[in-house]
Design a protein around this nucleic acid. Structure first.
Lengths: 185, 185
DNA sequence: GCACTGCGGCTAATGGCATTAGCCTGTTGG
DNA sequence: CCAACAGGCTAATGCCATTAGCCGCAGTGC
C-alpha cells in the first residue's frame, strides 16, 4: 500500500476530535482538514461528502456506545441489567455529550446506519430479556426505556436542566420508576 | 408609521412557515427572504442575525406551546392534569415536529429565551401542584416529567421509533408509569 | 534499474449563504 | 413644502462545500 497519511477511518477519527473539542455544529470539512493538516478538497479522497462523514461519525459513535453498554449489562439480568444499562447510558452521554448528539435520530431508516442501530437496539433488548415479555410488551418496554434514557440524557447534555444539583437522584428515581413498571422477572 | 411590508414579528412568522414547509435545517435567511419576496439583506432591518432569528423563533414556539399546554391543564388537577399535559405535549409535537426541534435546548441560560422558558416551566409545575410535593420532590418530578415527555416525543418526531404501530399505547404506558410514581394527591 | 499505474495530495474555480456598507425612495411629522 | 428616517436594494466580502484537473511518489512488473 502507498503511503497514506489518512484513510476513511482516520478522517472519522479526526472528525471525532473536532466534535469533542469544538462541538457538533463545528464539524465542518474545513475544520477536519485543518485538524488533519491537509487541504479541504483532499478529504474527498476518503469521504464522499460532509453528509457521508456525518453518517460515518454517527455509526462510529453508535458502535462505541453499543460496546460500552454491552460491557455494562454483561453478566447481569433483570432489574440489575436495566439499572446498569441506564446508568452506563448516562455515563456515556456525560462523558461524550457532543458525540451523543452526533448519533442519527432514525438510524434504522438509513441503510448506512441501520446495522449500527440494530447493534444498539440488541443491547436494550438483551437487558429486558429476563422479564420474558411477549413481543408487543417487549416493543413497548424498549420504547419506554429508550424514551426515558434519551430524554434525560439529552436534556442533561444540552444543559437543559436549570441547576445541576440532585441530577443523580432524579435519574435514580427514573430508573426505579421504569423498573417498577416491569413485571417481576 | 411608514409602510412596512415586514416587521420583526412578520419575519418570525415567515420563518415559521419556512420551518413548517422545509424543516429546521432549511431555516436560512435566504429562504426566509425568498418566501417573503424580499432581498436577503433587507431582513437585517428587522432581525440582527440568523442566530437572533433562531432565538426569536424558539421563543415564539415556546410561547405557543405554553399556551396550548395551559389550555390542556386548565380546570384539571392531579393525575388528570398530568395525563392531559403529557397528551397535549405529544399532540403539539406531532402537529409541529419541526417547530418543536426549533426550541432552544437550554432556554433558561439565555436572557433572550429565559422568560419563555419559565412560562413553559410554570405549566409543568402547575400540573404537579395538587400532589403537594416539597421543593426537592417537585424538582425531581418536574425533571422526570420533562425527560419522559421530551424523550418520547423527540424520538417520535424524528422518526426514531422503527414502526409507528402502537405508539399511542406505548405513550399511555409512559403516562401511567409516571403517574404511578407520584404520591396520591 | 526502470517505466507504469494509481493513490493521495494540491491548487483553482464555482456557487450558496451570512453579513456589511452604502445608496435610494416614499412616507410622514412639522 | 421639507427634512428625516424607515425600509427596501445592489455591491462586495468571506467562509464553506464541492468539482475539475494537475502532480509526485510508492510499489509493480519487466
Amino acid at each position: 500500500m502507498p503511503r497514506a497519511r489518512l484513510s476513511t477511518a482516520g478522517v472519522v477519527e479526526v472528525a471525532l476530535a473536532v466534535i469533542d473539542e469544538q462541538g457538533l455544529e463545528q464539524l465542518t470539512l474545513a475544520a477536519v482538514a485543518a485538524h488533519a493538516g491537509v487541504a479541504t478538497p483532499s478529504l474527498y479522497k476518503h469521504v464522499a461528502s460532509l453528509a457521508q462523514l456525518r453518517n460515518l461519525v454517527g455509526v462510529r459513535v453508535m458502535e462505541d456506545m453499543a460496546e460500552q453498554l454491552t460491557l455494562a449489562v454483561v453478566g447481569r439480568s433483570g432489574d440489575d441489567a436495566v439499572a446498569s444499562l441506564m446508568r452506563a447510558s448516562r455515563a456515556y452521554v456525560v462523558r461524550h455529550p457532543t458525540r451523543y448528539a452526533a448519533m442519527p435520530a432514525d438510524p434504522l431508516h438509513d441503510p448506512a446506519t441501520q446495522a449500527a442501530g440494530y447493534k444498539l437496539l440488541q443491547v436494550f433488548l438483551g437487558a429486558l430479556r429476563a422479564y420474558r415479555l411477549d413481543d408487543a410488551a417487549t416493543i413497548h418496554a424498549t420504547r419506554c426505556l429508550r424514551a426515558i434514557t434519551h430524554g434525560f440524557t439529552s436534556i442533561e447534555a444540552a444543559g437543559g436542566f436549570g441547576l445541576p444539583e440532585g441530577l443523580d437522584d432524579t435519574y435514580e428515581q427514573l430508573i426505579q420508576m421504569f423498573i417498577a413498571s416491569l413485571p417481576r422477572p
